[in-house]
Design a protein around this nucleic acid. Structure first.
Lengths: 201, 201
DNA sequence: GCAGTTATCTAACGCTTGTTCGAAAGCGTA
DNA sequence: TACGCTTTCGAACAAGCGTTAGATAACTGC
């Protein structure tokens, strides 16, 4: 037994992680319904039956993909906020958070779609929605802080604004062309400029 | 033969329209991959085999759904712009267009997703993308007009701004709760207020 | 190198899928 | 009522689906 028994990474752990990674990509590329267990297996260079050593069912794979997706985004967004530093303006941190969200969505090709969640068994669905609420709370917190510090004009429905902003970027992952002239940061910056200052004279 | 041979609406036309309507709803509710020909048939109160009298294949149904979806949105958006009148500001017309887009997306439960388009045979895909470009051009035209009239601050990438704005609402159709306090117009208005004036002080 | 656990393969199952096709039914016209 | 055209049915197909289970291979600690 190795010195640290807790941290033991088995072969199964690695295979499981690879399966989630591959499934995430396939789900996002083709839509959840078109991705078969056999296709996930093929993409992970494994036989279809072997998947059931790691997951009890196809739904279980989906749950893991969603959990890993939101979890990963949450983590990276928190890191981006931390990197921006606690001293800079909440709006500047909000910008960093949006940018991280966008880049994660692009890289992991992940976005949690309501439709897919609705199909899940209730138990799994509840857990996922809780996770998603926690993720949204990060952005909400930054906006509230900005409001508290008097950085915002009054009269906005901040939850709606938050959803619109995040949604604009989540959708941007659908049309963004990595081969184009704009970097992901350019897009996030453009959104932030519109969001803070508006485009009208 | 009836007086006007051209305008004859056959029984098949009605069934075909019903199939597109039902398929549109199912595609959006469950995602394209999960909707089977048999389910579409059942929802349209017809036998599965009968569908192939109206459509050559499942892909052909999808193409029709996309075409009808973008076409319908285009039409309603144009109407909303016309209703606003040519005299009002381009930004006011842009607002009307966004609102119409959102309401259509909500009502028809339709959004054209890139993933689904990529799967289509090249021929059909090209036609659809042309249609989609024409739709986008309506919004682009309004922003350009606003710019030409000096209503906008300089330094924005208008195509990106346009995609972000439309995307925010397209995605909003995923989280918007019709049972909530806000009307679709409220959401579109909120977006327009953020878009024009910004939230920052 | 052997034993025992861990991980993967392989073949099969019952079911559903998209699609086809000949027969049946509906329907306007004479 | 009988005809021909249009529309729908209903059974069948090959292929692919998620899933299972027993045999096989790959590791691990002694």
């Amino acid at each position: 037994m190795p010195p640290s028994a807790k941290a033991k990474i088995t072969k199964a752990d690695k295979t499981r992680a690879r399966l989630i990674e591959v499934a995430t990509r396939l789900f996002q590329e083709h839509g959840s319904g078109e991705v078969t267990v056999r296709r996930i297996a093929a993409a992970a260079k494994i036989e279809a039956g072997s998947i059931y050593y790691h997951f009890a069912s196809r739904d279980e794979i989906m749950r893991a993909v969603l959990e890993s997706g939101v979890g990963g985004a949450h983590e990276e967004v928190m890191q981006a906020i931390a990197k921006a530093g606690p001293d800079c303006s909440p709006l500047e941190r909000f910008r960093a958070a949006l940018s991280a969200h966008f880049k994660y969505t692009l890289r992991r090709h992940f976005s949690s779609r309501m439709k897919e969640i609705r199909r899940l068994p209730k138990r799994l669905r509840d857990h996922h929605m809780k996770q998603e609420r926690e993720y949204a709370a990060v952005f909400a917190g930054l906006l509230k802080e900005a409001q508290r510090k008097g950085l915002l004009r009054p009269g906005f429905d901040l939850p709606v604004v938050r959803m619109l902003a995040i949604g604009a970027l989540t959708w941007a992952a659908e049309w963004y062309d990595p081969a184009g002239a704009k970097s992901p940061d350019d897009v996030a910056d453009e959104l932030m400029r519109v969001l803070t200052g508006g485009i009208a004279r």
